[in-house]
Structure formats: structure tokens, C-alpha cells
């Protein structure tokens, strides 16, 4: 799982560690900035009876900003800046995205058609596409998982799960 040390001869192409480091550091820096902005609004001083609501968030944000700047500093000026390490190879990234993109579609599906129906589709799709299982087996398993969760949550534990904006299961009275 650790980044592979590249010996120099063959450099597999992909997103470099450097780029990833910079992206994450900038993401953190932005978050820190946002938090700091809101803490100033809330009041970030130490008044008579202790810290105000924004006191801790302010210093937390300060630490986030300083340490992400530190990370950036190491990327640009640190010892290992000359090395070219690969964060993720294109082939690996493709595999990761082949899970991530359907998962995103799945969550969007939950929003629209609810957890139960979306889960059947997602499990079936995953098994057929990545597992090369036959269609009927995959759909059957998807339906089985969905029915099991339905029984467990909706009927047994009485926890209503999300049915989506266009509740396709409304006909069974849930």
C-alpha cells in the first residue's frame, strides 16, 4: 500500500505524489481558511469568563493552515523534492474509479429512488461488471440483500430508511 520506490529506470506514469501532496495541502489550507473566517465572525478572543465560541476553532484553523503550509514547504524545498514518485498509476486509478464512479451513481440513485431499489441495481451491476457473474445470479443476490435489509430495518427494528424522492416502493405501503 505504501508508495513504491521507483528505481529510476522505468517510471510508470500516473499522478505524482508531489501533485497529490499539493492538492491535499491546498484542500486543507482552504478548509482552514474557511474555519478561520467563521471563527472571527463568532468572536475568537479570550474574554473575562473564558474563551468565546470561535476561540478554539480559530487556533485549530491556524494549526491546520500552518501545518498544510509546512507540508507544502516540504514538497517544494524538502529533501525529497527532486524524486519522482507515483501516487497512483493510471491503471490503478482506473480500477479505483471503477468502484468510485458507480458508488457515486449509487448514492445519487439512493437520493432519487431510495436505498432498497438502488441497492439491488448497484450490487447487480458491480457483480456483473467487475465480478463477471451471470446476470440472474447478480440480480437475485441484490434482491436478496435488499429484502434482508428491508425486513431487518423496516419491519423488525422499525427504522425507516430513505425511500428517495420518487418512492418507487410506495405501493407496498412504506
Amino acid at each position: 500500500m505504501e508508495d513504491k520506490q521507483v528505481s529510476g529506470e522505468v517510471v510508470p506514469s500516473g499522478i505524482s505524489v508531489r501533485a497529490a501532496e499539493i492538492a491535499v495541502a491546498i484542500f486543507l489550507l482552504t478548509l482552514g481558511g474557511l474555519v478561520m473566517y467563521d471563527s472571527v465572525r463568532l468572536g475568537f478572543r479570550w474574554v473575562g469568563d473564558g474563551p468565546q465560541a470561535g476561540y478554539f476553532p480559530f487556533y485549530i484553523a491556524l494549526f491546520i493552515c500552518v501545518s498544510s503550509l509546512g507540508v507544502l514547504g516540504q514538497v517544494f524545498f524538502g529533501k525529497g523534492r527532486g524524486e519522482h514518485k507515483v501516487f497512483v498509476e493510471w491503471a490503478q486509478l482506473k480500477l479505483v474509479l471503477s468502484v468510485l464512479i458507480p458508488a457515486t451513481v449509487y448514492v445519487f440513485g439512493i437520493q432519487m429512488i431510495g436505498i432498497y431499489v438502488a441497492s439491488v441495481a448497484y450490487i447487480a451491476f458491480f457483480m456483473v461488471w467487475l465480478g463477471k457473474y451471470p446476470w440472474f445470479k447478480s440480480v437475485l443476490l441484490g434482491i436478496a440483500v435488499s429484502i434482508a435489509t428491508f425486513m431487518m430495518f423496516e419491519i423488525w427494528f422499525k427504522v425507516p430508511l430513505f425511500k428517495g424522492a420518487f418512492n418507487p416502493l410506495s405501493f407496498i405501503g412504506y
Binding site: 449509487y106 439512493i110 435489509t149 430508511l161
Partner: peptide, 13 residues
């Protein structure tokens, strides 16, 4: 490829 989607479904729930 069976367990991963089921885990993701359970995680979502």
C-alpha cells in the same frame, strides 16, 4: 466483487 458492493450498501445504510 460480491462482498465489496454489499459492504458499500451496508455502509450507506
Amino acid at each position: 466483487s460480491i462482498v465489496a458492493p454489499v459492504i458499500i450498501v451496508i455502509c450507506a445504510i
